[in-house]
Nucleic acid binder design. Structure first.
Lengths: 151, 151
DNA sequence: TATATTTAAGACATAAGACTCTTTATTCTT
DNA sequence: AAGAATAAAGAGTCTTATGTCTTAAATATA
């Protein structure tokens, strides 16, 4: 797969939060149960997003996590970079450290075209857009063995 | 990165062989030295390509590996699928097993567009095309710490 | 103030990916 | 037939990703 599992979880969790923005904070326990993820593991993942200023967190009763900014301003690319790093949008497809525009590897040009498009799609796709689609079209955010449809 | 390191190695090795097609068999030792890879590790990788009928191998003196078919008929996609499996071109970007065209995840449509293009590029790009470009434009196949330019 | 609720932090465990090493099988050359 | 050259096979190691568990810190509520 193109994204790490950790990154998948991060995207789904932020989307869940985006769908519940009216509440002040959403507890991580609730997110993990709805998405079928380990609570502790998800906690670690969301810590990173909190450190990266993508989310806010609050301890104690009625605590949890929330988006640090309006969902319209948070792109999928931001989350991917926060979790998986810039490698997907930056590196050589063959892992050559000498590969660059000046000294391209054989696949450089082919990959660059696709990669730029991938980056553009990720940069343009915001949490708000995805949350809207989930609401309007009833799209799936969880596996069936978790609470199947987003409520 | 989008491809496993193993897959990177496989693509570079097959390209090296494609550049030396005039010889009957190319020893794996020679490939590993030119590309700066472990001989034993590369041997294991090329074993898979041999099992998948992408390469032929021959033991003993003057042995080595060669392409099983003309380089014009071997696409990068074939090699990627042989090593990394079909996951890159098939799975859900968020790793949801319930995601499908009928029950799409929120990112399904965005990803499908990019993925289809990626698959098309990989399917259209043959070893022959890449080998030609390497020859004509002096592109790089090895890291600098190995034998830097393809000879 | 005491207790319950929640995230933060860090140690630990398991699995998969990436490599290494040794032995075996095959083929050529002498 | 003997020895050298080569890939095949399989066991073993190291690293990274993934996941679990325990304890600490912060906050609200009674």
């Amino acid at each position: 797969m193109i994204l790490s599992k950790t990154c998948d979880h991060a995207i789904r969790a932020t989307l869940y939060v985006a769908l519940h923005q009216e509440r002040n904070y959403v507890p991580i326990r609730e997110i993990s149960e709805h998405l079928g993820l380990s609570f502790h593991f998800l906690t670690k993942i969301l810590q990173v997003l909190t450190q990266q200023k993508i989310m806010n967190s609050f301890k104690g009763p009625n605590g949890g996590v929330s988006l640090a900014r309006p969902a319209q301003t948070i792109s999928i690319k931001e989350i991917v970079v926060a979790i998986d790093g810039k490698g997907l949008f930056a590196g050589c497809m063959l892992g050559l450290d000498t590969c660059s525009d000046e000294h391209p590897c054989p696949l450089h040009q082919q990959w660059t075209v696709v990669r730029d498009q991938l980056e553009a799609v990720f940069a343009q796709t915001t949490l708000a857009y995805l949350a809207d689609r989930i609401r309007n079209e009833g799209l799936r955010l969880a596996n069936l063995d978790a609470s199947s449809l987003v409520s």
